[in-house]
Design a binder for these strands. Structure first.
Lengths: 210, 210
DNA sequence: TAAATAGTGTAACAATTGTTACTGTAAGAA
DNA sequence: TTCTTACAGTAACAATTGTTACACTATTTA
């Protein structure tokens, strides 16, 4: 575990803290598509991502979904922190988008390390800052962009986090993430295909030059 | 200043911290409609709101605006904290929506007090948590609601933060906040008037039962 | 007071997005 | 193999939102 941890967090945490983390934390591997947090859950530990990507979703009262952002290597779930600290329920759903390796830190350590290690403090605040910026990006997309622009952005982001130009998603799944409808997504994807930006196949999309 | 501070923050900060705040901070009164932070600004102190309301706005590349949320008594600007800590530029614009009283804390104290006072630490994390929830609400509104629902929600929120049922806004100003157009807002407001929910007047709206 | 400006009302139309319905076909199950 | 289901393509239409244009009036300015 120490090696994995050092690879992803060695540049920001000193050895003493890394040792503490290894002692207190649990290493986990999560398969693709696993629901890690459900809305309303109480969360008792905080994840440090080693590899992979986790999709963070919001849901409204009718069960409609919207992709907020992805967590990646070096990230932690700020919402989880916030929930843990305040002992509140989760406001979001988390699903592994790829196979994911992570380290689960029990929440009690959070506060202890904040007073003890400046590097941990910096990490926590940096995380909040990053997550707020991700949320601002989400707001920007939904508020200021048309569906075709949002779709393009979605595909780019998906290619980036999965590190492959083959997107294994059905149009329906994409529609859920964007909170749109299958027909709309199919229509816009077809337009992108005609522009030579991608190739459509059954259950997957090969991107060319987005 | 101590009295003002105690009224708004006395229940969460111990006397020792309150004293430190009074020593380090500056009291300010801001008139209505004053631009307090511009996008791209570097911020060097952190506001603690005593009274009034501050509007937090997001802007896209074309200059289109969107109201994110209001800060009120007992709130602090988490974005400002994040900016200060990371020495980053502001991602948002802040404009006083009413006359506002606040206390400005120099950013150096932030980190000192975080290690020294649990109450301050709790306050900081609580603030982050609150702000993230406000952003989630904004995402929900923009992603899941129609314009008529968003308008209604906007009016309710405006009534709440200004504590009066007379909304002194032109349709154009409302359109800016919602990132819509004047004609659309006029149309929907007219519909609400016909439903008996409000009275339309030149440059102001009297709400009846939203 | 006259002229200019700002705020609103409204119609007509355009663009975007969502919905319904039906088709064809690939993949998997019986 | 045949049957069933899942996925995608597309047309036709509906709903929502945005745009343009113009009229009317209150308020402000000259």
């Amino acid at each position: 575990m120490m090696q994995e941890l050092k690879n992803s967090y060695g540049h920001i945490f000193e050895d003493e803290l890394l040792n503490e983390i290894v002692k207190a934390a649990v290493y986990k591997e999560i398969p693709e598509g696993h629901k890690m947090i459900e809305i309303g859950d109480y969360v008792k530990s905080m994840p440090l991502l080693i590899s992979g990507a986790i999709k963070i979703l919001r849901e409204d009262t009718d069960g409609d979904e919207l992709l907020l952002y992805y967590l990646e290597k070096g990230d932690t779930c700020t919402m989880t922190m916030a929930c843990c600290m305040g002992n509140k329920k989760s406001e979001i759903r988390a699903i592994s988008e790829t196979k994911t390796k992570l380290i689960m830190v029990p929440i009690e350590k959070m506060e202890i390390w904040i007073t003890k290690y400046k590097s941990w403090r910096d990490f926590v605040f940096e995380s909040y800052h990053n997550r707020i910026n991700e949320l601002l990006n989400t707001v920007d997309s939904v508020a200021f962009l048309n569906m075709d622009q949002r779709l393009l952005q979605y595909l780019k982001e998906k290619v980036r986090v999965t590190n492959t130009n083959i997107i294994k998603k059905t149009h329906q799944e994409i529609a859920y993430d964007l909170h749109s409808s299958r027909v709309v997504v199919s229509r816009l994807l077809k337009k992108l295909e005609k522009l030579g930006k991608l190739e459509l196949h059954r259950s997957h999309i090969k991107t060319i030059n987005l």
